[in-house]
Design a protein around this nucleic acid. Structure first.
Lengths: 340, 340
DNA sequence: CGGCCTTTCCTAAACGATTAGGGTGAGTGA
DNA sequence: TCACTCACCCTAATCGTTTAGGAAAGGCCG
């Protein structure tokens, strides 16, 4: 292809002005039906394809939304992004993802670069799936770019700001009620760093319900990786022994992975010695031995709702500050059993 | 922010022409060092951020690459894309992903829309991770957009065309040699549809080596989902009984999942009744009981190599047609054992 | 000193769309 | 018939950059 067909080429061939072509193709008013049809016909005879760069430049709009993740190896995020992307495609939008993890650890420099890249692209909206840094927040606000938090609650500095995610407090309560109902008295909450602010409600809901039900909760701190959880769990066992707790709530899937490995390597059987609950449903949960009880936060639904919300904000320019908390469910499997 | 700072604003404040500012900020020649420094200083004093849309429009270039996937629920693809994206970020490029699956099944209409969306964006390059349809191939070629296949081999119509992926033939050979070495005589190859053209070499390598080693191979056809594999496997067992084979090679992770469920539900124990090998290493492989022997195709490496290749093509305009086959390794675990 | 590079910078025309702000002619009502 | 509206279309400016094609000034050489 020598040169690409432009709107001007189409207008020349169709014998009308570029204005008419533009209106006709965009489906806007001001063009008669016969002209519109004629224009459309010649346009695709010529193989014309709109240049969205030019359209966005002139229109001061953008059809891309930026997604910022800090996923590391947590598959959860990629599923989430996939979900969002699927919806956006239906609205003619597309997502570009920027991850702020390098070599498994959060990297502030990368976050800065990501924000800068998204600004350069003049994205229509930014989706944050973790607690953004102070300077990112400031830059985004300064540029007047709509921000929506998904999964992770907006930090106070970002409010008011729309949010879609799991009701993490409720999730913790469900787990605590389930474990206490099985007769467990001493639970361990295995938490990732509070940099990810989903940590707080996830722990608080668990603690509150547990104390209400007379179950003690010990928090074990862990890096946000399977390896970190493995080390943390073995460390904890070495310190307090296996008799000091009868249940574990691992606050996400990588941590669950680490816990299960640690228990296996310590020779502790699940659920006989200790009950285990994970956060997030995943495909292998049912095939493990024992199959694993988890909180299902309905990630596809979160993705869909987020996509819908984003499309609404971008295409209709609506101001939204609504917080949408999806109700989680407990999927009870073999890794939790009555205490004996 | 009332109005956004443009290059013209910077040039006015700095007292030089837009040309000078442009050259200075882009790090090109034709500007004295002191002027350059002065321009850069005032630019970030003013909080100037390049508008890449405008730059790309004028420069007839693009900093985005399109990635086409047909992933469904196969986590493999999202890891691959993550890998590629990570490298691209370092080159100032970014990826937009378009998936051609709707509701778990391939959708040609979606593929057409994806291609159209990528053309509209004037992407610099397209990455295909599955066998694109005839019309997509034609459109991409007509638009003169570089195409690189990752994971999936280019169809004949697309050659010559660069490729990065696993040496699937070799993978099959490794599996066959391992199984035959354990004394197995009758293997089942569980294959996803040949629409995904990785199927062919993956099966051929296995078959060739098996026949060389005196091991028979029966192919069982399956949809490309865990559910499909489950159904296919149970159907096969109902038809021929469990005594007719002693090993299974599941050609990707969703299929492996279906196989393991089917065997469990049929009460067949692994590896006592049948050895099982999966394709693709995944985090839970080692924690399952039994842990699963898999082919590790080194997906991170594939992603890195692909990213590097893409960056080279886009930023340096190099013409590349090289095929890069990464050597897979077998990770032997408990799901394969000597036949007794 | 005149001619000729170089270096440094500027002017102004693109890139490919969108869209105010008209203009034209037909229809309508008085 | 005239004034007015309305539907349809056009002209030309504009979005924010990059970059040919000079121009001015200084240095160098014979």
């Amino acid at each position: 292809m020598a040169r690409r067909i432009t709107l001007k080429d189409v207008s020349a061939r169709a014998g009308v002005s570029t204005y008419t072509v533009s209106q006709a193709l965009a489906g806007k008013a001001g063009v008669s039906d016969e002209t519109r049809e004629m224009v459309i016909r010649t346009a695709d005879e010529m193989g014309y394809v709109t240049n969205v760069l030019a359209a966005n430049l002139k229109g001061q709009t953008s059809s891309t939304v930026g997604v910022m993740t800090a996923s590391g190896r947590n598959q959860y995020y990629s599923m989430l992004v996939q979900g969002i992307d699927g919806v956006l495609q239906q609205y003619g939008l597309h997502a570009v993802t920027n991850d702020a993890m390098r070599g498994g650890v959060y990297n502030a420099e990368l976050e800065r670069e990501s924000v800068s890249a998204l600004l350069q692209q003049r994205v229509a909206l930014i989706v944050a799936t973790y607690s953004l840094g102070e300077s990112s927040l400031r830059a985004i606000r300064e540029w007047d770019i709509p921000l929506v938090f998904v999964d992770s609650l907006p930090p106070a500095a970002a409010e008011p700001c729309p949010f879609v995610g799991c009701d993490n407090r409720l999730a913790g309560e469900l787990v605590a009620e389930h474990l206490a109902g099985l007769g467990h008295r001493n639970a361990v909450f295995l938490g990732f760093p509070a940099d990810w602010n989903t940590r707080l409600p996830r722990e608080a809901g668990f603690r509150d319900a547990a104390s209400r039900l007379g179950m003690s909760v010990t928090t074990v701190e862990s890096e946000n990786t399977a390896e970190g959880a493995y080390a943390a769990m073995r460390g904890h066992l070495a310190e307090v022994g296996s008799g000091s707790f009868d249940a574990i709530y691992a606050s996400n899937t990588p941590l669950l992975h680490g816990v299960l490995r640690a228990l296996r390597d310590e020779g502790l059987s699940v659920p006989e010695s200790v009950s285990v609950v994970g956060f997030d449903e995943f495909e292998w949960a049912e095939l493990l031995s024992p199959s694993v009880t988890v909180v299902d936060q309905h990630i596809e639904q979160i993705g869909r709702e987020a996509g819908r919300l984003i499309a609404e904000i971008v295409t209709e320019g609506r101001e939204v500050t609504e917080h949408l908390a999806i109700r989680p469910d407990l999927i009870i499997r073999q890794s939790t059993a009555p205490r004996h």
